[in-house]
């Protein structure tokens, strides 16, 4: 642990500011709370929002897990885990069931989460309407009015043009029937895990200086139409390492002759299944 910095890097005033903003976020599910995002020693776009949320929540008894693309061993996940081991000295784990706090980028673990766990998402762009309306002053008004026609038209046009909704990740959700919310760039495969999750889900966007939350057991609907219901990705393959037919699969190029194999993106889930199979 590095003694020249406060526990978990941030000073206590900053943590208090973050906790207040998080309380507001939990009180208004899906609402983007502006906060005084600090400059972190990691680059913007690499998890500064998630890191600030994690820093504000961490206590000495927490067990931290950090994943990127579902994997514990991707370099950025390793680096963030190393950061907190260094500035907070907390215990870290790669096991989903052992973690009290999980910081993630782009995935929700396959293992169902519990009430005593918190999932912290790294969010590059908190505004689900941003690609449709670049002006922040305008999107805040649209949220205030609950006017999400832009998004419905976009999804409708996808169907008219391609026969499908052409959004495969960062698929927009309506939280508690009120706020249109970005689930962060998770694949839409993970969207159903947001709905009525026992675990608290917190979202941090450092560069854009916004926090938001999905409290436990909150209703989260993925936008759809009656005649075009929401669907998740499916594979013709199973994981070639653990044989799972239910997990999100990464495609791995194995040779230069078009050879591919599919493996679980959640490394802990996959590893645990393989260990169980051997036992």
């Amino acid at each position: 642990m590095t003694p020249s910095y406060n526990f978990a890097f941030l000073d206590e005033d900053t943590k208090r500011m973050l906790r207040r903003a998080l309380l507001k976020a939990v009180a208004i599910p899906g609402y983007q709370v502006p906060f005084g995002s600090r400059e972190m020693p990691l680059p913007y776009g690499w998890g500064t929002g998630g890191i600030q949320v994690t820093a504000a929540l961490l206590g000495p008894d927490d067990v931290l897990k950090v994943i990127d693309q579902g994997a514990d061993d991707t370099t950025n996940a390793v680096n963030i885990r190393r950061f907190f081991a260094r500035v907070a000295g907390v215990a870290t784990t790669e096991r989903t069931v052992e973690a009290s706090l999980i910081q993630t980028r782009h995935r929700i673990p396959e293992t169902p989460l519990r009430e005593d766990q918190i999932l912290v998402f790294q969010v590059p762009e908190p505004e689900p309407l941003r690609t449709l309306e670049p002006r922040e002053a305008e999107t805040r008004t649209l949220h205030a009015l609950g006017d999400y026609g832009l998004m419905h038209v976009k999804l409708y046009e996808d169907i008219a043009q391609y026969g499908h909704i052409a959004t495969s990740y960062d698929y927009p959700v309506l939280v508690d029937g009120r706020f249109l919310t970005s689930p962060s760039p998770i694949p839409k495969f993970d969207n159903p895990k947001l709905d009525r999750s026992p675990a608290l889900m917190l979202f941090g966007a450092g560069r854009e200086k916004r926090l938001y939350a999905i409290p436990p057991y909150t209703r989260v609907e993925s936008l759809a139409f009656d005649d075009h219901p929401f669907e998740i990705q499916q594979w013709e393959h199973r994981c070639e390492l653990c044989g799972s037919g239910e997990s999100y699969l990464d495609e791995v190029v194995v040779d230069d002759r078009g050879g591919r194999m599919f493996v679980c993106s959640d490394t802990d889930y996959c590893g645990r299944r393989r260990t169980e199979a051997q036992a």
Binding site: G45, Q69, Y169, D170, P185, P187, R207, W235, D250
Partner: peptide
């Protein structure tokens, strides 16, 4: 600089979703 260069981080999961689509 951070956000432009974050593109070098892994995006396997999103890319897989786009491939599948």
């Amino acid at each position: 600089s951070g956000f432009v260069q974050h593109l070098k981080l892994p995006h396997y999961v999103d890319f897989q979703a786009e491939l599948s689509l």
